[in-house]
Simulated scan of single mutants.
Amino acid sequence: MSLFATSTGKGVKFNEIGARITGKIAQLPFEKQATKFGSQEPDYWPNGDPKMQVVVPLTETNAPREDGNDDGDRTLYVSSTAMKKAIFAAISAAGAQDVQVGGTLTVQYTGNDPASQNPANPKKLYQAQYSPPATGLAQPAAAPAAPQAAPAPQ
C-alpha cells in the first residue's frame, strides 16, 4: 500500500445493539495509532507502547447518507479484541487468508459482554461476514466441438 493513500470515509459508529455496516474493501487495511477518546491526541498503554488499531477503508456501504455530499464511504477502526476476532473468524470461514480489495465485509454489534468488568461501559460483542472479491479468472464455457466429416474412401 502506498504511504500516500488516505482513508477519507467517516468513521463507523456502533451506537446501539444491532448496528451493522456492510461495504467493499476500498484499499488494504493498515495500522494506525489510536487516539484518546474525544481528542486527536495519540493514545498509549501504561507501559508507554502506542495503542494501535487496524483501519479498514470501505466503499459502497449500506450506511445512511448524512447529506448530499456524503458518498457513503466509511472507515472501520478496529481496535477491540472482540471485533478483531469476529473479522478473523469471518475471513477463516470464507476460506481466505486475509481481506482483499474488492471483498465485502459486514460487521454487526450483537450485544454486550455480560462478564464485562465495567458495567457502565461494557465490552461490545461483534459478528462479521466476509466474501472475497470475484477473481475474474472464470473461463468462458468452451464451444462445442464441430463434428468432423468422416474421411472420404479412396
Rank of each mutant, 00 (worst) to 15 (best):
L125N: 12
A34K: 13
K36W: 00
R74V: 13
G48L: 08
P29L: 04
S116W: 05
N47I: 03
D71K: 14
G23N: 06
D73P: 00
G38C: 09
I21S: 01
A143F: 02
P140S: 06
G48D: 05
K84V: 04
N69D: 15
V78K: 00
T8A: 09
A19H: 12
W45C: 01
G72Q: 12
K51G: 00
E60S: 14
K36G: 00
I91K: 07
T35P: 01
Q129E: 14
P114F: 08
D73M: 12
L58E: 06
D43Q: 09
A5H: 09
T35Q: 12
T110E: 09
D113A: 09
G23I: 08
N62D: 15
G18R: 09
K36Y: 00
A143I: 06
A128G: 04
N121V: 09
N47G: 02
Y109A: 08
A63Q: 13
W45K: 14
V99C: 12
Y109S: 01
L3R: 01
N15V: 02
G23W: 05
Y126E: 04
P122F: 07
N69M: 14
L28I: 03
L28F: 02
A89N: 15
G18F: 11
A143C: 00
S79H: 10
F4Y: 08
Q139E: 13
F88L: 09
P133T: 01
N15S: 13
A138I: 03
A146V: 15
A146R: 13
R65Y: 14
A152N: 07
K123E: 14
R65C: 06
A26N: 05
L137Y: 01
N112I: 03
L58F: 09
A5L: 12
S39I: 07
A149F: 10
E60G: 10
K124V: 02
G72W: 13
N69E: 14
K24E: 13
Q129I: 00
G38M: 08
Q40M: 08
T106Q: 14
T8G: 10
V99S: 08
L76K: 03
P29Q: 02
P57L: 10
D70Q: 10
A63W: 14
Y109I: 03
V78G: 01
Y126G: 03
P29W: 01
T59I: 11
L3H: 05
A63K: 04
Q100N: 12
G68E: 15
V101H: 04
S131F: 01
T59W: 00
K13E: 12
V55P: 01
P29T: 04
P132Y: 06
P140R: 10
A94V: 12
A86T: 03
K24G: 01
D98T: 15
D67K: 12
I17M: 07
V54S: 09
G23L: 07
L58R: 07
Y130H: 05
